Amino acid sequence: MTLQWTAVAFFLYAEIGVNVILCVPFLSAQRWRSVFNWRIWSWLSPYWNKCFFTMIMVLIVLFLDAVREVHKYSGPEPMQDAKVNPNVYDHVHMKLFRAQRNLYISGFSLFLWLIMRRVVTLLNQVAVTLENNAGVQAQMDSALKAAQQHQEDNLTLKQALLEGDKSMSATKQQMKLEVEKLAGQLKAAEDAVRRSHAEVEAMRRQAKGLAQEYDRLLREHHQLQAPDAAHSFIL
């Protein structure tokens, strides 16, 4: 195996290892996101796209070269020469085997390189989605708590209003009884005042009658004293 295909083979093994590690089930997407947020990745991020597309171009070139080699050694001309010379037959098959091996190595390297980038992107998206879901869940929990608190406040207010209505109705009933009691007392006082006025009027009429009677008696007294005085003057 030449140096370039040895490097591609090691690159393929590295890709397999990285993809296996990325697909480990007990490493969550949030943990991978924290790993991807290391400072070294931010330092390498300006070169990442260039490196990615460069590797794609290199792997595509190697893949096309492997396809060309497979097509070259699987054609009719090498097989005709191999039938004539048995040593050439073994050499052609060895070349064809190497070309197919290189084709598989470059093809799987290209495929896993694309898969690895896609897996990293999906892990980041899943981590962001989980963080957003956690934020939305926290907002929903706070909104639910606020709604429950609002409902409890409404129940407390309704109970307070019911108690206020009950106390107000009791107060109204008590005030109504007090008003009725005061109205009865006022009526009794008015009756007492009317009776007092009637008694005063009767006493006034009686006093007036007594005064008239006194005046009459006084006049009769003067009339009775007048003849006695005249008789004593004559004597």
Rank of each mutant, 00 (worst) to 15 (best):
H222G: 06
Q174Y: 11
F111E: 00
V126T: 14
E213L: 07
L144E: 12
S34D: 15
K166S: 12
Q206K: 08
A198H: 14
L62I: 02
P86M: 04
R204S: 08
L155M: 13
I21G: 11
S196P: 00
Q174A: 09
W48G: 08
R33Y: 14
A14I: 01
H91E: 15
V20G: 08
E199I: 11
N85W: 01
I234F: 11
E178N: 10
D215L: 10
L217Q: 09
R68G: 01
T129S: 07
E77D: 09
M140R: 12
P25K: 05
Q206T: 03
D90M: 07
E163S: 12
R101T: 02
F111R: 00
E178D: 10
S34C: 06
H231E: 14
N132W: 10
E77Y: 04
D165L: 10
V200T: 03
F11P: 00
T6P: 01
L161D: 10
M79V: 05
K50Q: 15
Y104K: 01
N37Y: 04
V20T: 13
R33S: 15
A14F: 07
Q185P: 00
T156G: 02
D81S: 15
A147D: 04
A183Q: 15
R204A: 13
R194C: 01
E131A: 08
Q185L: 13
W113K: 00
M79C: 00
K187A: 07
N154K: 13
A138Y: 03
R194I: 06
E220D: 14
N49F: 04
S169T: 08
P25R: 06
D153H: 10
L144D: 12
Q139I: 03
E220S: 13
V84E: 09
L186N: 13
H222D: 14
A143Q: 10
M203P: 01
L114C: 10
Y13I: 13
F26D: 09
L114Y: 06
L155V: 13
Y104V: 03
Y47W: 15
R205I: 07
K83N: 10
E180D: 14
D165R: 07
N87W: 09
M168R: 06
R204Q: 12
V92F: 06
E163V: 08
N124G: 05
L62H: 04
H71D: 02
Q173A: 10
I234R: 08
A192F: 01
L210S: 06
V70E: 02
Q4Y: 03
M55E: 06
F53Y: 09
L96V: 00
F26Y: 15
Y47H: 08
A230K: 09
A189G: 01
L186H: 12
A183V: 11
V67Q: 02
I16M: 09
Q148V: 05
T156Y: 07
L62Q: 07
